[in-house]
């Protein structure tokens, strides 16, 4: 894991939603940190998990796999998971992997909170 990797987390809607905001590239070196962070967040079973990707400029398949794992956990918890603020460069890997229709992807956190 890379120890200097920053991920911020905040709760919204009186605890009904948790917003996780990773930053920088999510690649093979950093995805274990994100995976551990999401596991910790999901252990509290938030009804809605929002992953704000606005500060993520690059993601490889290890990052995508981490988000797929989180989605599966959310479904088991009967919770929802929403991705937002996705940059075009990041969106393209979801399109190549045909996961853009599997995830709920919205333009911004505000929209994700209003769902």
């Amino acid at each position: 894991m890379e120890h200097d990797y920053l991920i911020s987390t905040r709760t919204e809607l009186s605890g009904a939603a948790t917003v996780v905001s990773p930053s920088g590239d999510i690649d093979l070196g950093r995805s274990p940190t994100l995976r551990a962070h999401l596991k910790q967040v999901q252990s509290k079973k938030p009804p809605r998990l929002i992953v704000d990707l606005g500060l993520v400029e690059y993601m490889d398949s290890s990052g995508v796999a981490t988000l797929v794992e989180a989605l599966q956990t959310a479904r088991k918890q009967q919770a929802s998971m929403v991705l937002c603020n996705m940059q075009d460069k990041v969106r393209s890997i979801f399109e190549i992997a045909r996961l853009d229709t599997v995830f709920q992807i919205v333009p911004d956190v505000k929209t994700a909170l209003e769902l």
């Binding site: 398949s61 995508v64 796999a65 797929v68 794992e69 599966q72 992997a97 996961l99 599997v102």
Partner: peptide
């Protein structure tokens, strides 16, 4: 198979697609 939604196994597909 991309219809099998699970973590991992996407790398080769991505390389061949690109």
């Amino acid at each position: 198979d991309l219809a099998d939604i699970r973590p991992g196994g996407l790398g080769v597909h991505i390389i061949r697609e690109i």
